[in-house]
């Protein structure tokens, strides 16, 4: 292992990690939003949108991100829709992640008893108030493990952004590998970098899940 090579290229990896993390987080943020909207459309059976949300989640969950990115980046411009690499990255990751987040929210909402919704309605809350104060807080608590699993999954998926010629971790490593030939060091640093990014995420997830478990709401149903 050539440590001086490693030391010399740490800045490259740092900038790569910056790209990975930044676009990963953009993607996660947008995915949460899209996922929430889709999930609420389906939960409240909003006409037409329920159907659209269903179609979208099925499409996004059953196709590879790599193919989605090729379609966005190399296919769409040929019919006049030109998107920058950055836009493709965020749209692609959101397209994929939104569907996964919608599933996480959906199973969270399904775990909230129907009677909770009715209890909220019975004290005169509007639909919006009921979602905000009664349903979502409980659904989120249940959905947290799935949401964090998706966050880790999505950050890992950013490794495909190299096909958009973005200088993320993967592409930084690939460029160094093809130019310098120090494959072992390059890949060692690449693996270490992903570990350093994802370990903290995993620890945060662990901490949040534990807190929620201790605050456990307990069983509401009569036995």
């Amino acid at each position: 292992m050539d440590w001086s090579f490693i030391g010399q290229h740490i800045p490259d990896y740092l900038s790569g990690a910056g790209v990975t993390l930044r676009f990963g987080l953009y993607g996660v943020g947008c995915s949460l939003l899209v996922g929430l909207i889709c999930c609420l459309c389906r939960y409240f059976r909003v006409p037409v949108f329920t159907w659209l949300a269903r179609l979208y989640t099925e499409l996004a969950r059953n196709t590879p991100l790599l193919v989605q990115l090729f379609f966005l980046y190399a296919g769409l411009p040929r019919v006049g829709v030109k998107l920058s690499a950055d836009a493709c990255a965020v749209i692609g990751l959101t397209f994929l992640g939104g569907a996964y987040m919608a599933e996480a929210f959906r199973s969270g909402l399904e775990s909230v008893d129907q009677t909770q919704k009715e209890a909220g309605e019975c004290i005169g809350l509007t639909r919006g108030q009921n979602i905000r104060y009664v349903l979502l807080p409980q659904a989120l608590a249940t959905a947290v493990p799935a949401i964090f699993a998706n966050v880790i999954f999505l950050i890992k998926e950013t490794s495909m952004f190299s096909v958009l010629a973005m200088m993320d971790l993967m592409n930084v490593a690939d460029t160094l590998r093809t130019s310098g030939g120090r494959t072992v060091e390059v890949l060692f640093m690449l693996a270490a970098a992903y570990l350093l990014i994802l370990m903290p995420v995993s620890l945060i997830a662990y901490w949040v899940e534990r807190r929620l478990r201790y605050a456990g709401f307990g069983d509401q149903r009569p036995v």
Binding site: D113, T115, Q116, E118, A119, G120, E121, C122, I123, G124, L125, T126, R127, Y133, V134, P137, Q138, A141, A215, F217, G218, Q220, R221, P222
Partner: peptide, 21 residues
């Protein structure tokens, strides 16, 4: 506007349905 009616009609169920959080 059913919520406006429900503000005037209270209801309590068998399963309590307090908000657990």
């Amino acid at each position: 506007d059913m919520h406006l009616v429900r503000q005037k009609v209270g209801m309590v169920f068998q399963s309590y349905d307090l908000f657990p959080h």
